[in-house]
Design a protein around this nucleic acid. Structure first.
Lengths: 350, 350
DNA sequence: CTTTTGCACTCTCAAGGGGAGAGTGCTAAC
DNA sequence: GTTAGCACTCTCCCCTTGAGAGTGCAAAAG
């Protein structure tokens, strides 16, 4: 199978030149001219020939000239082709992997684990590391416990998905005694442990409706608790970001207004969250290059993500955000390995 | 008492001109020249006279010329004098206070309350809002509860300071039954409720030492729990920041390198935390202007803080960080009121 | 038919040179 | 003590200019 068959209209030489150009641009951050590319490629071609090839690549929408007499720069499509078929990944050194492993193993509780992942990503890649927290969608109730706090407040403690703990303060109509609360908890635990949180809630409400009359006080209490305690938790803290300041190091992104928008995006989350949600479905490393993300704020940025899983279940997504000209060959393996290690660490903690 | 007595070497006219200059500089952000100041002051003085006064003020270290032929700009000492003796505070409209009050009252749980305070501050002042979380130093145990999680894990739930809940996962030597855990909790609760967390720990350890032999299993269990569960919690999430992007709107701070340092400071916390710690001791609004903070990163920034308290006890500090030329007359009352409202809201939640 | 050479052309960038504007300090007059 | 006048000094903006980089095209070479 010839190279042409893989990438119609693009012979091997053109591909090689594209690859060289992208690599150099990633390294230097400057538009690449024909002379420089001819020299760097090592292909013993004259700049003029290289110019012809570059013109072809530009026609195909893979390159772009900032202006008449600057060199050329890869377009999003150019990066895409590069990443998909030209890129040779730089596998991590075993020592590096070991090092990462150790840093994970030092961490105590799961919450810190995610923060660690985020800041590891950011410090190794010098990009902004992001970690999307475990989704609450399919929270399975393992156990519930109630503690009286004050006159009309009860603390509900839900142990969810066998590993996560949620506290919610419930306002109640009247004071409940400790033993009342204990019986309510027992009732709910026996009925619902292992079931989906929101299903549980619906089920309890149904029971309440159909049998309101013969319900005894204990039942009523239990259901009041359940209703208030299982309410949809406000979707806070959806993801973590570390190392935003790393982004400031890149020339393309040092324009203040651009940065502003980016930070706003981080704060308001919405766009980035959608992107992460997409990645959640796919498995393995996913790459969004520039405009591909569909969000204007991320126009000059690429996002490299990978889902992480524990016990065969996908828990969330992690990755990095950086300029389109990030060092994909290094970043991709790092994101990949970090996702695996985070999964493994979560498994162990469990 | 004459004005000279209050500020030696500074007559009333000079003070008034300084005040006018600072106000204009805060408003416009541009060095103020003699002509503009003469006009703005309304004092029917010629620019030349004003120049003489300005020269005096410069000699006193209250003003500064960026270069020979720009206007003048207040120094940190100039701001300090302005804030201490010249500033007339702009009291909040009653409607504004009511509005704030309402926004606080909508919030459910204490953690969100602090976030709300932070983002309210930032959105109203257009500066970066900061809220230092309640200090853990004098955590008083109210109640402790244990839940078995898995073979060798127990979930400890500490209700601390009557309002805050901490979860800690404890690794144990062996499996404990639910009733064992319950008895351990009862033992600790009866013994220690209302006491300082770290005192409790020491006391338990002492008991363990002095009476190891006749200790029964239950006691041992209880103490194992207590030891592991009361351990010093890692000092995470010391403070919240909202609205960092607001800082980018100010010309003085839009230099990328400067912003970089500032964000780094936010991330690494140390300097800012020290500053907040200082404010914790004083009561009422505190103001650090530029270099006064003692931290280079904050050289062109001022920090306005106020401790907030509930039930007569100081819980933490909140405030804003912004450029030295922030609108002190507006900001100070806002910080003040927000601190009071946060305190009140925390009281109510309790 | 592909590659190279030569050349005119275009565009950016940095440096340099006024000129306008703003503001100052000083001196002498009011 | 206050003001007017004036020379002086900055900055900032605009313009020009030249160097450098890179291009595209046409014609020559392979």
């Amino acid at each position: 199978m010839s190279a042409e068959a893989m990438n119609p209209d693009l012979n091997e030489r053109a591909q090689y030149l594209l690859k060289t150009l992208v690599e150099r641009y990633i390294r230097e951050g400057q538009p690449v001219g024909s002379r420089a590319l001819a020299r760097e490629s090592g292909l013993d071609l004259s700049p003029a020939t290289v110019r012809n090839v570059m013109a072809d690549l530009e026609d195909l929408g893979l390159l772009h000239s900032p202006h008449t007499s600057a060199g050329r720069v890869p377009t999003a499509r150019g990066y895409r082709l590069f990443v998909d078929t030209l890129l040779k990944l730089e596998p991590l050194q075993i020592t590096q992997v070991k090092d990462l492993e150790q840093r994970f193993s030092k961490v105590q509780n799961p919450a810190t684990l995610l923060e660690t992942a985020s800041s590891l990503l950011s410090s190794i890649t010098h990009l902004a590391g992001i970690v999307m927290l475990p989704r609450q969608d399919h929270a399975t109730l393992r156990q519930v416990e109630y503690l009286p706090l004050s006159e009309n407040q009860v603390l509900a403690i839900l142990v969810v998905n066998d590993r996560e703990v949620q506290n919610r303060i419930i306002r109640t109509e009247r004071r409940y005694t400790a033993s009342e609360l204990e019986r309510a908890a027992n009732y709910i635990n026996s009925l619902c442990a292992g079931k989906d949180l929101y299903l549980v809630r619906e089920r309890l409400m149904e029971e309440l409706k159909s049998a309101r009359e013969q319900m005894n006080t204990m039942m009523l209490a239990a259901i009041e608790m359940a209703d208030k305690g299982f309410d949809k938790r406000p979707p806070s803290d959806d993801f973590l970001v570390a190392g935003q300041t790393n982004l400031m190091e890149y020339g393309e992104l040092s324009d203040v207004e651009k940065l502003r928008q980016l930070f706003d995006a981080f704060n308001h989350k919405r766009d980035i969250l959608h992107l992460l949600d997409q990645s959640l479905k796919a498995s393995g490393v996913q790459i969004f290059i520039g405009e591909e993300s569909g969000y204007e704020v991320l126009d000059d940025c690429s996002v490299v993500t990978s889902p992480y899983e524990a016990e065969g279940e996908v828990l969330g997504v992690l990755g990095v955000i950086g300029p389109t000209r990030m060092a994909y060959d290094r970043v991709i393996p790092i994101v990949d390995v970090t996702a695996r290690l985070l999964g493994a660490a979560l498994n162990k903690q469990q």
